[in-house]
Write a protein that binds this DNA or RNA. Structure first.
Lengths: 155, 155
DNA sequence: GCAATCCGGACCAAATCAGTACCCTTTAAG
DNA sequence: CTTAAAGGGTACTGATTTGGTCCGGATTGC
């Protein structure tokens, strides 16, 4: 499967938890308690999100984190980019020149970029507000099945 | 970054190499020579592709592999599914129930599926024929830069 | 001044993946 | 019928990545 970092999943959990709270700043510890995630991990996520401008941080005694923008002004692509780094499906375009072997076959590189753009556009179309919305009616997922109906929604 | 398996990249290389050859069947060894990839790896990829019906294999003395369908009838999503397994960004929906911790925050599960569908649709829109097309004019990639302009095309 | 909080980096263990090797089955040629 | 060529499947190993932790330092409010 296309592995999306687990930290990115946690990031969405933390950010939705912030939405559901009051407007005040949230400390890393309080968010860890509310989400059930380990505190150091939450702290790491918040730092990454703040570095990319998705969070506004306030240091000092009564400090904490706040969302930098409204939930519908933050999309999934931005969150992924903050945690996992730039969205690129392959590492074909890297510093290592010898990895590609025969160069005559490598013009496909530009075409992977086409795929990257398509995926990026899809991810930009989903906002944090969409993710925070409580589970919506979905005919594919009759919510009574915590077992593993996962294979159904695969390609 | 969103890690797409390196084997999937190789799969596209191998399949484009098959397109550029004549119509006859290709052996795993001949494809390995033409692509510069290690032979056992090519064999592994071909087996995976054949298992999902993307390749037609012919055993015996003069056997080999052929594309099961026309290049424009095969899309990237199918290749990824054959190599990396079903396309699912997160493993939130798994057999392990304890992993999620607080259940009250987990309704976002259905929303990840929305993201999955968006990505899947994007990948289905790119065919193998698109990938095999020799590098097309792309303003973002002024083909004279094998160094590492990779960060430019990131999100 | 003191305490609470964020900031930045380094560090370690565990899971995952790429790659390889081996043996079996099938098929066609001689 | 025999032989060789090719795919089919499984198991194993080394390396890379990732998730998670920890520590000292900087900053702000009380």
């Amino acid at each position: 499967m296309i592995r999306l970092s687990k930290l990115t999943d946690y990031a969405v959990v933390v950010m939705t938890a912030m939405i559901q709270g009051d407007g005040g700043p949230h400390t890393a510890i309080s968010l860890a308690e509310r989400t059930g995630l380990p505190a150091p991990t939450v702290s790491k996520i918040l730092k990454l999100l703040a570095r990319d401008g998705l969070m506004a941080s306030h240091r000092g005694a009564t400090g904490g984190y706040r969302l930098a923008r409204a939930p519908d002004a933050i999309n999934v692509a931005q969150i992924i980019a903050a945690i996992d780094g730039p969205i690129a499906l392959t590492d074909c375009v890297e510093g290592a020149p010898g990895a590609c072997g025969v160069e005559s076959l490598c013009p496909r590189r530009g075409n992977w970029d086409r795929v990257n753009r398509a995926v990026r556009g899809a991810l930009e179309g989903v906002s944090l507000a969409d993710m925070a919305r409580p589970s919506f009616p979905d005919p594919l997922l009759p919510k009574a099945a915590p077992a593993l109906p996962a294979t159904a929604d695969a390609i």
